[in-house]
């Protein structure tokens, strides 16, 4: 174990890249000088204690950080090589990125309309195509069997675990290239969590998955690469096996062995 090492693996043609990114909310820094790359079609895990900047990182990817009035972003956030802050159509970017939050959110529409929301905004109105798309997304989110007979129920009336899978189905409905999950298993039961984890392993063939989690074991199970953040800094990043079994940094070791956080 080497203490305080800063070795970073070289990622060729990363799907998502951060170059010297510093984000602050007013005077408070949330991310300091982050540089990393996330490879395509892999699950990229992000671990770290609370307030280490993990959620902020995700918000930079799809530019929902813009909605926080006091935020300022320096450096370059790149998706497919393009700086997202220079994109003209930010809505297009957000359609390319699917986001799942910690707390399940069912929109006050029918289950069907929940999943059909994004396609409708994108211009898809053909009923037959929508039906197919809704079913496909619900199947992928392992929710279809439970709701197929009650697609007209209000999304807000589903259970917490079902609403979280509904959120996943919504995220998949606009066919994202990148799927971001922010501590998705906090408010749901272990069985649902396991189901979703299996889905993620399948989905990574079609998209790049960024998985922020406070469950260290979850990252160990799912992620191909893992990054460890602490106090708004990137401490270590690399293949999951290496980060867990032979971390370069003492802090990383402490965290993955349950020392703090």
């Amino acid at each position: 174990m080497v203490k305080g090492g800063r070795w970073r693996p070289r990622v060729m043609d990363p799907h998502i890249g951060f170059e010297n990114v510093t984000v602050s909310y007013g005077p408070q820094p949330a991310l300091r000088n982050i540089t990393l790359g996330m490879p395509r079609n892999q699950i990229f895990g992000i671990i770290g204690p609370a307030n280490s900047g993990k959620t902020t990182l995700l918000k930079c990817i799809n530019r929902t950080i813009d909605f926080i009035g006091t935020s300022s972003v320096k450096g370059r956030v790149l998706v497919d090589g393009e700086d997202v802050n220079r994109l003209r159509n930010v809505y297009d970017l957000r359609r390319r990125v699917g986001m799942v939050f910690p707390l399940p959110v069912g929109l006050p529409l029918t289950v069907y309309e929940n999943v059909a929301y994004a396609p409708r905004r994108a211009g898809l109105f053909d009923r037959h195509e929508l039906d197919e798309l809704v079913e496909k997304c619900l199947r992928q989110a392992v929710l279809w069997d439970e709701v197929k007979d009650r697609l007209q129920t209000l999304g807000t009336k589903l259970s917490g675990g079902q609403q979280q899978r509904l959120t996943l189905a919504r995220a998949l409905s606009h066919r994202p290239e990148i799927l971001c999950l922010d501590e998705f298993s906090i408010a749901i039961d272990p069985v649902t969590t396991m189901k979703i984890e299996d889905v993620l392993l399948e989905l990574k063939q079609d998209m790049t998955i960024v998985l922020v989690t406070n469950l260290v074991q979850q990252a160990h199970r799912l992620a191909d690469q893992t990054a460890f953040f602490n106090d708004s800094r990137l401490i270590e990043v690399g293949p999951t096996e290496k980060v867990f079994d032979e971390p370069e940094n003492q802090l990383t070791y402490d965290y993955v062995t349950g020392g703090f956080g």
Binding site: T64, R94, M99, V105, L107, R121
Partner: peptide, 25 residues
């Protein structure tokens, strides 16, 4: 607020969100 955020994260604009979720409710 969570409804609005869910819509924004799917790529809906502010007005689309207002028109489809906020105002009807």
């Amino acid at each position: 607020m969570s409804f609005r955020e869910a819509c924004w994260n799917m790529g809906a604009t502010r007005w689309q969100t207002i028109r489809t979720i906020v105002l009807p409710n």
